[in-house]
Amino acid sequence: MVNPDPSVAISVEGLRKSFGDREVVRGVSFSVARGECVGLLGHNGAGKTTTIEILEGYLARDGGQVSVLGTDPVQADAAWRRRIGIVLQDMEVFPTLTVAESLRMFADLYPAPRAVGDALELVDLGRLASTRVGRLSGGEKRRLDVALGLIGNPELLFLDEPTTGLDPSARRDLWELVGNLTGSGVTIVLTTHYMDEAQTLADRLVILADGVVAAEGTFDELVERLGDTTTISFREPDAVRVAAIGQHLGVALRVDGDRAEFSSAKPQTDLQRLLRWAEEHGVGLEHLVVQRSSLEDLFLSIGPDGQDATVGATTGARR
């Protein structure tokens, strides 16, 4: 299928793939607009890697329609591959080549590559240009992988767990880089296990569970479907006081160790009532935390089999 709509970078309809008797992708459908960053999330075994590898042209599908930059990846040729960049989850170039030599080796495959020096600066590896790859740390190798994915100036970039092994500072730098790339029009498909990363980088999220799309939308849309609740928690080791607070607020408090928490649909009102009660009873609420539902809550609410979803999960396609 060739997608006639130039504003669509990726179109997936009813995608299916089996390995032996096991169907690991069971009718997945979603689309990615040009210039958009879409996060593909899911538990281990949800079908993320299989879906991504079909989009990258590594795997042939068993059913459904796929168009990536207007081309069916099964029929991908060199001209199509010049337009995409790939950052694999596990890959190591020759350990005996230097960082700059590795980038040059890949740059020579493309008609209009980035300058090696520019690519090095993008991932902050300029000072290690002459270092052999085998001597890099895990995080430095990961940054080199990202630079190799960018060296061909791709229109579409697949990022598979790009920040695994990076320290917090390097993660933030890479987030900034990804933000700049989408800002310059590069389309990005991101898979990650870091929910804060997906929340920060992705314009839209596609959550897979057991080979189907369990949820799809922007972060705000998904959180709204989850029930936009806020969790209020504090340290309170006295079980009697916990029960009294619950009675006063009219909610059931959950106790975890010496912490108590409850979910609130009206956090401002409930917080005021809680603070007033504490003041009237001369109780100090230590380690008070007010937190909106996170992507992690959403992710955890969708079980590996997609059955426990509380966000209106569908079994199959949704656009």
């Binding site: 990258e56 042209g57 590594y58 060199a78 001209a79 591959r81 010049r82 995409i84 790939i86 694999l88 596990d90 890959m91 190591e92 170039v93 020759f94 890949f106 495959l109 493309y110 190799l148 061909g152």
Partner: peptide
């Protein structure tokens, strides 16, 4: 070795003839 470290797969995803 270069296959098992993923380099061949990565090269397959480039325009390398």
């Amino acid at each position: 070795d270069i296959r098992e470290r993923g380099l061949l797969k990565r090269l397959r995803g480039t325009p390398l003839p």
